[in-house]
């Protein structure tokens, strides 16, 4: 005998509903509670809000050019470099002074020997 499919479908669907898993029943009860209390399902909006804020901050940090003069962390390095360059110049000046001093003495001795 062929059973009427329509009523058989309804019976099986009812059976499916009656055998909803316990975890799902719990979640549905919680959803019902939130709906009645009008607690907004804002989980999606929070996720997108966070992602949007992070993207904005990242884009802003990449777009803003660096200002090397205002970077305080490099000041000490610059000072050290300047100091070193000053000292280099001083050393070079000393070398030149020694040279000319030596040249002066050499020329004097040369003159004395020629005499």
């Amino acid at each position: 005998m062929t059973k009427k499919p329509n009523s058989e479908f309804a019976d099986d669907l009812q059976f499916l509903e009656e055998n909803t898993q316990a975890t799902d029943i719990f979640r549905l009860a919680r959803s019902r509670k939130f709906a009645l209390e009008q607690k907004s399902p804002s989980y999606r909006s929070i996720k997108w809000l966070t992602a949007g804020a992070f993207s904005t901050i990242l884009a802003f940090s990449l777009m803003v050019p660096y200002d090397t003069d205002s970077l305080s962390t490099d000041n000490s390095i610059d000072k050290a470099l300047h100091a070193q360059s000053d000292s280099d110049e001083t050393v070079e000046e000393l070398y030149e002074e020694d040279f000319y001093y030596w040249l002066d003495i050499y020329q004097t001795e040369l003159l004395v020997s020629n005499d």
Partner: peptide
């Protein structure tokens, strides 16, 4: 579950 919760909320 999300869809059901949103539907309940809106109703």
């Amino acid at each position: 579950h999300d869809i059901v919760q949103e539907s309940m909320y809106k109703l």
